[in-house]
Simulated assay, not measured.
Amino acid sequence: MDYQYPIDHDWSTDEIIDVIHFYESIEQAYERGIDRDKLLHIYNRFKEIVPSKAQEKTLCREFEEVSGYSSYRAIKKAREASGSIIRM
Rank of each mutant, 00 (worst) to 15 (best):
Q55E: 15
L59A: 04
K57V: 08
E24D: 14
K76R: 14
E27W: 02
G83W: 02
H41Q: 13
K57A: 13
R73H: 06
S71R: 00
D2G: 15
I75A: 07
Q55R: 15
S25D: 12
A54P: 02
R87V: 10
E65T: 07
I86L: 11
C60V: 04
D8R: 14
Q4S: 15
E64I: 00
G68K: 02
S52M: 04
Q55W: 08
V66D: 05
S67H: 06
S67F: 07
L59F: 12
P6T: 01
I86S: 13
I75N: 09
F22R: 04
I20R: 06
I17T: 15
S67W: 05
R45H: 10
V66T: 08
A29K: 04
R45D: 09
G33V: 05
E64P: 00
Y30A: 07
Y3I: 13
K76L: 13
S12N: 08
H9C: 05
E56N: 08
K47W: 03
K38R: 14
I85D: 05
Y5A: 10
D35M: 02
P6C: 03
A81M: 04
K53M: 13
D14P: 01
A81Q: 06
Y69P: 00
P6G: 06
R61A: 08
K38G: 01
D8K: 13
P6I: 03
C60L: 14
R36N: 01
I42G: 04
E31H: 09
I49T: 02
R45K: 14
Y5V: 14
R73S: 06
L39T: 01
F22H: 10
Y3C: 11
A78C: 06
R87G: 04
E56V: 04
I86M: 12
Y72W: 10
I75S: 07
I75P: 05
A29M: 02
I85L: 13
S25C: 13
E31A: 09
I16E: 13
E80P: 01
M1T: 07
V50K: 02
P6Y: 03
K53W: 12
P6V: 01
E27Q: 13
F46H: 06
H9K: 14
F63H: 00
K38L: 14
E27M: 09
E80W: 04
Y72E: 11
S12A: 10
I86K: 11
S67E: 07
S25H: 11
E15H: 08
E65D: 12
F46C: 03
F63I: 00
A74Q: 08
K77V: 01
W11G: 04
F22G: 07
P6N: 06
R32L: 15
Q4E: 15
Y30P: 00
R45M: 06
A74F: 08
N44E: 11
A54C: 08
I16Q: 11
H41N: 12
Y72G: 02
W11L: 07
I49F: 03
A29Q: 04
G68N: 02
V66L: 03
V66C: 03
K47D: 08
E48H: 10
W11S: 06
A74K: 03
R32D: 14
V19I: 15
L39M: 08
D10P: 00
